[in-house]
Design a protein around this nucleic acid. Sequence first.
DNA 1: CTGAATATTTGACAAGCTGAACCTTTCTCG
DNA 2: CGAGAAAGGTTCAGCTTGTCAAATATTCAG
Lengths: 146, 146
Amino acid sequence: MQEEQPDPLTPEVVDLMAALVGVFHKEYEEAAAARSLTGAQAKVLGLLRRGPLPMRQIAQTLSCEPSNITGIVDRLEARGLVERQADPEDRRIKRVAATETGSAATAELRASLNFAREPLAALSQDERLQLRDLLQRMLDQARRQD
Amino acid sequence: MQEEQPDPLTPEVVDLMAALVGVFHKEYEEAAAARSLTGAQAKVLGLLRRGPLPMRQIAQTLSCEPSNITGIVDRLEARGLVERQADPEDRRIKRVAATETGSAATAELRASLNFAREPLAALSQDERLQLRDLLQRMLDQARRQD
DNA sequence: CTGAATATTTGACAAGCTGAACCTTTCTCG
DNA sequence: CGAGAAAGGTTCAGCTTGTCAAATATTCAG
């Protein structure tokens, strides 16, 4: 809706982001596959890192329908990576919790993301600091707008 | 395989990248959906921006099986966004070309990516320049490693 | 000319995702 | 209190994405 002046730098940065998104996405998918997880399963498992979550909240975080999460959690549960627990406060709610095995899997997966090492290795300590601040500010802006 | 010292900045930057990738991905998907395209269809259509491409090359660029592209192109073709043309040099090859309508759709979609405006709006001209250079170098590094 | 290699398609099948219909539990308010 | 609305999950049908194996057509190598 807003008609800004055409800063030639902006589309250029957007294309770079798009390319980086592609690289990141591919690497994530491969790291997951190496542990026989799909990308979606890895994402859900990753969300449980800080503790159990209700189905609904998982769906909300991933911007998808709750019915979709049912299937993904089914498959994770079938493999013993995750558990459904009843919420004592509200019996409608089922909290999904990572099992011991599940937690180990995500920790391992996160540690294996080479994306960290290789592309970032091209930057000096100072530049990483710069990059962090720039990204942080973009993200804040994005969150403010949603 | 490489055991680097644990630079505390690196995982932090990786998490930021992951978050930004999430935002970007979501916005792309929504922009595509607003034109009744799926993400995959939009990606393929976007590749044809600079001219027709053989099926195989599309598959290679998107890192997926050629048989997958067949279906996506089928659906794009059914909607008149894309055409299969025979290659005069090698009759095994089918080149996929965006139609008039198809080109218009991608141009529009690209233009609509607000990701450009909003998060980047938080940065000054100078900072965008910095960001571009940092991203460019990361990407070069990532490509060198693949 | 024959056999290997290449480009694409087809078919079967799993997973992701949506939307609508359906329980169960909780909340609201007359 | 009790009836109906609302909220959390699940189920089901249907579509798209993606893989793998087999089949077809064309080109290439010797």
